[in-house]
Design a protein around this nucleic acid. Structure first.
Lengths: 191, 191
DNA sequence: TGTTATAATGAATATTTATTCAGTATCTTT
DNA sequence: AAAGATACTGAATAAATATTCATTATAACA
């Protein structure tokens, strides 16, 4: 008996992401995905029941993977600043290396595919970082009056924009610039 | 002779935007637009040659309108801080009041519809604010080492995120919070 | 190495969506 | 108020896209 090619599912996902970057979720068709993944259209239906199912599974995969990536190399023993910086760098790296994924997730969020439950799941992913900031505030590591949620937003938004402009070639990042960016963000915390 | 209803084009645009917020550009169909605008499908084709034309015209309209809005109430006589604050508030207000538009523009940017020329046009829109920051730096109003472009990104990204979370109901804004947010951003400039 | 189960193919079919068009309604002008 | 011009309608058609399926190829196992 012939078995399913486990790599194939990933190749299909990859193709969908490449297409999303190029033409958005709006522009994706099953035949385009098949062509990009260099397989026959019918093969898609061996791995996924419908197009909707494909998109949906891709979303779940990406959401889970990225949540993991954010907390890589982080542990409680790190000082507050180092902890924040680790996560900050993780997120920036993630937004750059997995840019296609980011585009997909953003568009999925405002697409016919998303469900309320998934929106809530996405919100939950933010909790760990949010809690870290809370702790920093309690321990007086953060001097500003602003609440943690606001600080979190400021960091997140900045990083997103930074990665975006880097990818688009409008503001190319290097080590110095990344360091400068972090310092800028860090200063906001008033420490 | 009967004349075209000038409001109709706007009603069609509005319908497209409402749908974009609900289901993304991916989910828009001509019949859905017609239904949302409460007209017959065929009528759409009196005002727009094709669906692509409709989307395209909407983009141009939004891009132009929003660029105007950013500079509202701003003039050279304002102090640097007041100038920045005016634009900062304009942008926040814009992202909240015209949230549907923002979603549309973001998705359009990664859709099959965008052209290279349009990408460049979007980049040009940022110039006025960018130049204001440059001047501030030259006049020593901004103390930080970071370059203007980086500062600009930090503000832009923060505001976006802020508006987004406000709309999604995760961080509801009021006057105090808006003021706190601006102060946070302003502190980054090191003044 | 032959058998078998199932993966893979891509043309055929079904479904969805864009676009057209013949008929009707309405505004404008004289 | 009648005529002319064109907006408006929505069902019919065309085009694009999703899905199926008869056929072929291949991996796993006896």
């Amino acid at each position: 008996m012939r078995t399913k090619d486990l790599n194939k599912k990933d190749r299909i996902f990859k193709a969908a992401l490449v297409l999303t970057k190029k033409v958005g979720i709006a522009g994706i068709t099953m035949s385009k995905i098949a062509k990009e993944a260099q397989i026959a259209t019918g093969t898609l239906y061996i791995y996924f029941k419908t197009k909707e199912e494909l998109i949906h599974q891709l979303y779940v995969k990406l959401e889970t993977e990225s949540a993991h990536r954010f907390l890589q190399n982080y542990d409680d023993s790190l000082s507050f600043k180092k902890g924040i910086k680790t996560i900050w760098l993780n997120y920036l790296k993630h937004r750059i290396e997995y840019f296609e994924e980011s585009i997909f997730l953003e568009q999925y969020y405002h697409s016919p595919y998303i469900t309320q439950q998934q929106k809530e799941m996405a919100e939950d992913m933010k909790q760990p970082v949010y809690r870290l900031l809370e702790t920093g505030k309690k321990n007086n590591e953060i001097k500003t009056q602003a609440d943690s949620q606001l600080l979190f937003l400021a960091m997140l938004g900045f990083i997103r924009e930074l990665a975006y402009e880097h990818i688009e070639g409008n503001y190319e990042l290097n080590e110095d610039r990344i360091e400068a960016a972090f310092q800028l963000n860090w200063r906001m915390l008033g420490s």
